[in-house]
C-alpha cells in the first residue's frame, strides 16, 4: 500500500519536473533565436552585379552579406596557369574547372580561410592573392598554396543572369 503511494508520488513529481523543463526550454529558445539573422537581413541574401565594364586582368570587389566578393576576369595566362597545377600539389585539392564554371570569370569570397582577413590582389608567390595578416599565398584560382590557411577561398552560389550580370546568392 505505502509502496504504491510512493510510486504515484514519484510519478507526479517526475511529470511536474518534466513538464516544467519543457517550458523552460521553450522559453529560452526565443532568447537565443533573436540573435540569428533577422527577416530583413535574410531578405538581402542576393545581389546582382553588372560586370560589363570589367576588362580582362581586372578584379572588382563587391559587398555581399557584409563580406567582399572578388569578381576577376582572368587573362588567358592565368587560366592556363590555374589549369596546369597538379592536384597532388594542392593542400586542398580542387580542379579549376570546378571553381570557375566559366573559366574567364572567377567569383569567390574574398576572405582568407585562416582568420578572415581580406587578401591582396596580384600578390604572393603564385600570382594570385596574398593575405597580409599571416602570409597565406593563393594561386590564380584562389587555391591555398602556402601559409597557414587550411582551405581554398570559398566560391559563393552565383549565376549569370545574362552575359553582363552576375547574381550572387
Amino acid at each position: 500500500m505505502s509502496e504504491k503511494k510512493t510510486n504515484r508520488r514519484d510519478f507526479l513529481f517526475t511529470a511536474t519536473y518534466a513538464v516544467g523543463a519543457v517550458g523552460v526550454g521553450a522559453t529560452i529558445w526565443p532568447m537565443i533565436d533573436q540573435m540569428n539573422p533577422d527577416a530583413s537581413v535574410k531578405a538581402l541574401a542576393s545581389t546582382e552585379v553588372d560586370v560589363s565594364n570589367v576588362n580582362p586582368g581586372k578584379t572588382i570587389t563587391v559587398l555581399w552579406r557584409g563580406k567582399p566578393v572578388f569578381i576577376r576576369r582572368r587573362t588567358q595566362n592565368e587560366i592556363e596557369e590555374a589549369k596546369s597545377v597538379k592536384l597532388e600539389d594542392l593542400k586542398h585539392p580542387e580542379k579549376d574547372e570546378d571553381r570557375a564554371k566559366n573559366p574567364e570569370w572567377l567569383v569567390m569570397l574574398g576572405v582568407c580561410t585562416h582568420l578572415g582577413c581580406v587578401p591582396l590582389d596580384q600578390k604572393g608567390d603564385y600570382n594570385g592573392w596574398f593575405c597580409p595578416c599571416h602570409g597565406s599565398h593563393y594561386d590564380t584560382s584562389g587555391r591555398i598554396r602556402k601559409g597557414p590557411a587550411p582551405t581554398n577561398m570559398e566560391i559563393p552560389k552565383y549565376e549569370f543572369v545574362d552575359v553582363n550580370t552576375i547574381k550572387i546568392g
Binding site: 526565443p30 532568447m31 533565436d33 533573436q34 540569428n36 533577422d38 527577416a39 530583413s40 537581413v41
Partner: peptide
C-alpha cells in the same frame, strides 16, 4: 518597429 517586425521573436520579447 524593426524589433516588432523583423527580429526573430522580437514582438514577443
Amino acid at each position: 518597429e524593426h524589433i516588432m517586425r523583423d527580429v526573430n521573436y522580437g514582438w514577443l520579447i
